[in-house]
Computed example of a mutant assay.
Amino acid sequence: MKATVLVDNNTIIDRYFLGEPGLSVLVEVDGLRVLLDCGYSGVFIENARRMNIDLLHLDWLVLSHGHLDHTWGLVDLIRLYTEAGINGIDLSRPRLLAHPEALVTRLANKIPEIGSLIGQDKLARHFDMAPSREPQWLSERLVWLGEIPRKFDFEYVGPTERLLVSAEGETVPDELVDDGALACVTDQGLVVISGCSHSGVCNIVEHAREVTGQERVVDVLGGFHLLNAPEARLQATADYLGALNLESLHACHCTDLAARICLARTCPVRETGSGLVLEYPTNQ
Rank of each mutant, 00 (worst) to 15 (best):
L142H: 02
V211T: 09
S132R: 06
L182V: 10
E215Y: 14
A167V: 12
T186K: 13
A167P: 11
E168T: 15
L142P: 04
L190R: 13
I148C: 06
R125Q: 15
V143T: 03
Q188H: 11
E215K: 15
L182C: 00
L241Q: 06
L221M: 13
P131H: 09
S139Q: 04
F152D: 05
S199Q: 04
D178A: 05
E206M: 06
G222H: 10
G223L: 03
D153N: 10
A208L: 13
A243N: 12
H207W: 13
D153I: 09
R216Y: 03
D219K: 07
C202M: 05
P159W: 00
G158R: 07
E170P: 13
K151S: 11
G146T: 08
E231Q: 10
L164R: 11
I118D: 00
V201K: 04
L138H: 12
A208V: 06
K151F: 07
V157A: 15
Y156M: 10
P131S: 14
F224R: 09
D128T: 15
R162K: 04
R150V: 02
Y156R: 14
V191S: 11
P131M: 10
L182F: 03
G223T: 02
D128M: 03
L241Y: 08
A243D: 14
V201P: 08
L117Y: 00
F154I: 13
A167C: 10
Q235E: 15
L190C: 11
